[in-house]
Design a protein around this nucleic acid. Structure first.
Length: 428
DNA sequence: TCTGGGGTCCTAGGACCC
DNA sequence: TCTGGGGTCCTAGGACCC
């Protein structure tokens, strides 16, 4: 067990990434949106100060955005992913044990020594990431991951810390816990926090002092682990070799609702294609496939959710086979007369692809198909996505995510966003 | 009036995370 | 008019077995 765990947390990561290449954005409110102009998924500090809530539907906050000249971007995951991996590279200079927890966060072990106090290491990390990547990070240091999260929470909010807070053996640890609202504790979501609040457990300190039995029955073993972690007992070790994924899901809300089976087929084939690519990239094959379609849950229209799961026997990683199954499922769940807003595909029961090299029937055809699939992937890698594609796949349709109408280069002004948006919906 | 017991596997649903 | 997407883990309950 490491002596201490540091959490390195990029501040407002997506918004900060946009700033890396556009110095003009510094000091300005910046937000990043999800697909279809849906929701706010990242905000700069200035945008938070304007009261723009995380996850807020864009259309509900347009007025504020316009009034304050907020800079609006659509997500550029390629950019964020690239900056993220560069950041992780730098972190590995400071510790042999780095867990890349998410695109903008990492846990790492730190060794305490008189020569290098922990907070000094934290400052060095912060300075180097800022200098080399241009992203500001917060560093929280403590005995466990959950406590490191608490440390980072305060490091982010207190000017005095200058972005680094070491709570190991700190006389302030208890004070920090007392000043952490229970809903801010890692692992405590909206449901648990409502439950805890109703029992008078309001802070991380209150939660730390809850009896084990009570935590176990009310919050399951997961919550009990959180309580122990708050006491400084490591229950969540660093995960240095991320295990292979267990599911692959590809789903999107449609740009506009669709009502026909034909359009849903095109959408589903598109999502299956993406799912197949993920599967083969990770050298996995799927043992089951679920296809689902949904109406718009925010609308007052009649609602319908349909889903169908098939076991895949034999397992497969071939897009054409997955498409056939998914479309068969789609036929069984499709109902006439609904306005569909979303569809998706989940691949489950994944196993390494090399375990399914031989098939009992038609093995030769299967082998040829795998070869073909490999070539298709290679061609698409070189010449661009969907250069080669399979039946039912159509590039366009009402269902396609309205995407890129705000490319980072062109949508830094509200007036521009409006114009581009109206151009898209105008009958040209 | 009585209605085994314990183990395992699977699935759906609920909680959480970013 | 416009409300994201992709994951993990745990539990309860049913099916099935001996």
């Amino acid at each position: 067990m490491p002596e201490a765990i540091a959490l390195i947390d990029a501040n407002n990561f997506y918004a900060s990434c946009e700033r890396v290449f556009d110095a003009r954005l510094h000091g300005k409110p910046v937000i990043v949106l999800s697909n279809n102009d849906g929701n706010i998924i990242a905000r700069s500090q200035e945008a938070k100060a304007l009261g723009l809530p995380m996850g807020a539907p864009f259309f509900k906050v347009r007025e504020i955005i316009e009034r304050h000249g907020v800079e609006v971007f659509s997500s550029n995951y390629a950019l964020y992913g690239d900056l993220s991996s560069r950041m992780m590279d730098i972190l590995s200079d400071f510790s042999p044990e780095v867990e890349c927890y998410s695109i903008d966060e990492a846990f790492m072990s730190l060794i305490d020594s008189s020569r290098q106090p922990l907070d000094k290491i934290g400052r060095a990390i912060r300075a180097r990431v800022k200098k080399h990547i241009g992203i500001p990070v917060t560093v929280g240091i403590a005995e466990t991951k959950t406590l490191a999260k608490v440390a980072a929470y305060h490091a982010k909010r207190s000017e005095k810390t200058k972005g680094v807070l070491d709570l190991t053996r700190s006389p302030y640890q208890e004070l920090a816990l007392a000043r952490t609202p229970v809903e801010e504790v890692w692992g405590i979501g909206p449901q648990y926090s409502a439950l805890l609040t109703s029992h008078g457990i309001l802070s991380a300190l209150d939660l730390r002092n809850v009896p084990d039995d009570w935590a176990r029955t009310q919050l399951t073993v997961v919550g009990l682990r959180t309580v122990h972690e708050l006491r400084g007992i490591q229950c969540l070790p660093l995960d240095l070799s991320p295990s292979t994924r267990k599911t692959v899901t590809v789903s999107r809300s449609f740009g506009s609702t669709v009502e026909t089976l034909k359009e849903l087929r095109a959408a589903v084939a598109f999502y299956v294609t993406r799912a197949g690519e993920k599967l083969r990239r990770d050298r996995l094959a799927a043992g089951s496939l679920t296809v689902f379609i949904e109406t718009n849950r925010f609308s007052s229209e009649r609602q319908y959710n349909g889903a169908k799961t098939f076991q895949l026997s034999p397992m497969t990683d071939l897009t054409p086979e997955l498409i056939v199954v998914a479309l068969r499922g789609l036929e069984t769940i499709f109902r006439e007369g609904y306005k569909y807003k979303r569809a998706g595909v989940t691949l489950d029961n994944l196993a390494p692809a090399e375990t399914l090299t031989k098939r009992l029937w038609d093995n030769e055809a299967y082998e040829r198909m795998r070869e073909l699939m490999k070539v298709v992937d290679e061609i698409n890698a070189v010449f661009g996505r969907d250069t080669v594609r399979f039946g039912y796949f159509e590039r366009d349709g009402k269902w396609r995510t309205r995407f890129g109408k705000r490319s980072p280069r062109y949508t830094t002004r509200w007036e521009e966003i409006l114009r581009v948006g109206s151009t898209l919906s105008a009958p040209i």
